[in-house]
């Protein structure tokens, strides 16, 4: 009797830990959200304090930002498609989707680094004004999150490659999926309030 009830119990218990893990990770994400909220508030307060340095409309290129946005949006979609492959147990399709997501994410970080380098080269570095300090902190923190997400993507690809899509891997992929989509949400606020708002 114990041999027939135990697997069911075990299955239930593991399902429970999985949903608890997701909830816990979600609560972490919400605390991360508060970090970004504080950085956005700081940026909002300091956006006008250019200290005779360049203002946003002098240095930002909206076409470039639209490109970055497209990359991140596409990567969100490819990750979603990857999660569906993972749930269906299609390991190879999952690996391909994860690789595409990783490349799109890396391209985004590359574009952002290029943008930062160009700004600093043109004399609009983080030390020039309160506005630029707040800008580099906010956008840089987002970029750092994406970079860590890419690292995590690489680790998960390695795990999927070696262990296949088992329950543990699926749980971790679920958390990474929340993280990745969350970064897309933050970017929506960045392009609206940091970039577009400068050109009103």
């Amino acid at each position: 009797m114990s041999s027939t009830t135990l697997p069911v119990m075990h299955d239930h218990a593991s399902h429970d830990t999985s949903s608890m893990t997701t909830l816990g990770f979600w609560i972490y994400l919400m605390s991360d959200c508060l970090i970004f909220a504080v950085l956005f508030a700081t940026f909002g307060v300091l956006a006008g304090n250019t200290a005779d340095g360049p203002a946003g409309r002098d240095i930002f290129n909206l076409r470039y930002v639209a490109g970055e946005t497209l990359l991140l949006l596409l990567s969100s979609f490819t990750f979603g498609a990857g999660m569906l492959s993972a749930k269906a147990g299609r390991r190879n399709a999952l690996l391909v989707w994860l690789a595409v997501t990783l490349l799109l994410g890396a391209a985004f970080v590359g574009m952002e680094l290029h943008e930062f380098a160009a700004l600093i080269h043109d004399g609009a570095g983080p030390g020039v004004s309160a506005f630029l300090s707040a800008y580099f902190t906010l956008v840089g923190t987002h970029g750092l999150h994406v970079t860590l997400g890419i690292l995590w993507l690489g680790v998960m690809m390695h795990q999927v490659f070696h262990y296949g899509v088992d329950e543990v891997v699926l749980r971790r992929l679920n958390c990474l999926s929340l993280f990745w989509h969350f970064l897309d949400l933050v970017w929506i606020c960045v392009f609206t309030f940091v970039y577009l708002r400068e050109f009103l």
Partner: peptide
Amino acid sequence: CTGLLIAIVVAGSL
């Protein structure tokens, strides 16, 4: 709940 906190922090600061 987080949305409420964010609204208070951001709107209050501004």
